[in-house]
């Protein structure tokens, strides 16, 4: 899987340490399939950001595809 990137401009910051969110590669998994995607997140605390349009758009599409595979 190619590295997909979802790193929009955002006002969200890490609520734990107050740090800025920076792009970093994250493994997401569904039904045994792992995808490496680039998401915004706090490198220190490990929190990531999955925006609404990603969750309900591309991510949902891939979920449906994998469920029917």
């Amino acid at each position: 899987m190619s590295l997909l990137s979802f790193t929009p401009d955002t006002d969200w910051t890490c609520g734990k340490c107050g740090g800025k969110l920076t792009p970093s590669p994250v493994d997401v998994e569904y039904l045994g399939n792992v995808f490496n995607v680039e998401l915004l997140g706090c490198a220190k605390c490990g929190l990531v950001l999955i925006p609404e349009d990603l969750a309900l758009g591309k991510m949902f599409e891939v979920e449906q595809l994998l469920e029917d595979k």
Partner: peptide
């Protein structure tokens, strides 16, 4: 203000 969901999991996430 808003809520949404997904089924993909983020390993190592909280």
């Amino acid at each position: 203000y808003n809520a949404y969901s997904h089924r993909m999991t983020i390993p190592g996430g909280p």
